[in-house]
Design a protein around this nucleic acid. Structure first.
Lengths: 224, 224
DNA sequence: ATTTTCACCGACCGATCGGTCAAGCCCGGC
DNA sequence: GCCGGGCTTGACCGATCGGTCGGTGAAAAT
């Protein structure tokens, strides 16, 4: 049904990979996430895996390939992972499900997620980088489609679609900087809270009816 | 009046610093922002400044100190910069001003901002790191104070204050990952749009009155 | 029984890393 | 004149970087 059956140990989409390769990818992802790409040496990865540095080059051609497997493998599956978790129903609930599913992915594949979204990368191989951006665009365009759907259905205001997508993704993408798995809520619960805040707004009660047409840029009304 | 009078060349709070030092800080910030801390060598910085590597060690004791001057100098002034731009008025408008001021700081000191918020850092000197976190906490607590103010004034719902602060800061902190200075809106305009979305919510028109008491976790109401 | 395959390792390579140092350059005060 | 001190430099250091190489030992294939 889904292509995600081979996920394990927090490493996504590494079908047909040996246990050792999965171990290397998991440890490398964790190190890339916490120390960055240039901050992580091949010796660090080998030491974390309890193997010799040479063995890394037996399974991967170089450091870039390890990072690419972590990052590209991660970003590919994010789209499929989320898409398969969007239920039929009102568009606004699809957006909610999008946020919750993305948060679930973050919780499951946390290190690969962080490594792929934050670690720096020289990228001598341009094609790998373009592939990553293409997948990221597809993910973002998928969200924009849901937002447009919600606008067409009249469930949300006529907001700027790309900007709305950026706001939603910002709330999810920044989570790794403050989220502590040992305390408070799960990422999914946090995503639900953020959805509530963004969808319903922070403003308290008594607003009754938005004026019919509002400026396309930012439909604000001056208080006082 | 304000302590920010010595800002120049995108480098904040480096009073009594020579032009050369300011140049080094500016170039180093730009490099740290685009290639990370470990990804930037002292040779890179020297080359960007058109000077020898030795000269860096004449003005700074080591690489960490350069980064600290960029990052800590940046985070210190962010708080003062924003605080001085919050007008008297309704608390919700203070939050709006907070977001716009933070965006203005981002626009002005973009490289130092990015370097301080994203580059990895070994941090052998624990005190510098703690100072940075202290300042960051002060900045975040300042925002939480404004949110609590708005709740007490009845302008916004009884939301989770820390979580609301995280949502607002996420929208601002993630901006550097997609913002393109050559196109579209200014950071300040983007901040205003985000404020509108978060404050008023995305939901369209006809909501009439929020139920008196809502669950503390996430005040959602099931559509259908 | 022999060959092939494959996971694995220790020693090593040239390049680059952060950092040092002794010496020059330049310019205002005597 | 010339002298002292802050900029500035190139040569150099040990450590570590990503990556290579020859080889080992055990299982699989023949």
């Amino acid at each position: 049904m889904t292509e995600l059956s081979t996920m394990k140990d927090g490493v996504a989409n590494q079908a047909e990979a040996s246990d050792r390769v999965l171990q290397i990818l998991a440890e490398a992802g964790r190190l890339f996430a916490s120390k960055g790409f240039e901050g992580t040496s091949m010796r660090d990865i080998a030491l974390a895996c309890g193997i010799s540095k040479s063995l890394l080059y037996h399974h991967f051609s170089n450091k870039d390939e390890i990072y690419a497997r972590v990052a590209v493998g991660s970003t590919l599956e994010l789209y499929l992972f989320v898409r398969d978790r969007i239920p039929d129903g009102p568009p606004s609930q699809k957006i909610r499900a999008f946020m919750v599913a993305t948060a679930e992915y973050f919780r499951r594949y946390r290190w690969a997620w962080i490594a792929s979204t934050t670690a720096f990368w020289n990228d001598p191989d341009r094609s790998r980088h373009k592939e990553r951006l293409t997948r990221r665009d597809r993910f973002e365009n998928f969200l924009r489609g849901l937002i447009q759907e919600a606008i067409d259905a009249g469930e949300i205001r006529k907001v700027d679609v790309p900007m709305t997508g950026r706001l939603i993704l910002s709330s999810l993408n920044w989570m790794h900087r403050w989220y502590n798995p040992n305390k408070s809520a799960t990422p999914e619960q946090i995503a639900e809270i953020f959805f509530d805040m963004i969808f319903n707004g922070l403003r308290s009660g008594e607003l009754v009816e938005l004026p019919g047409a509002e400026p396309p840029k930012a439909g604000r009304r001056k208080p006082r």
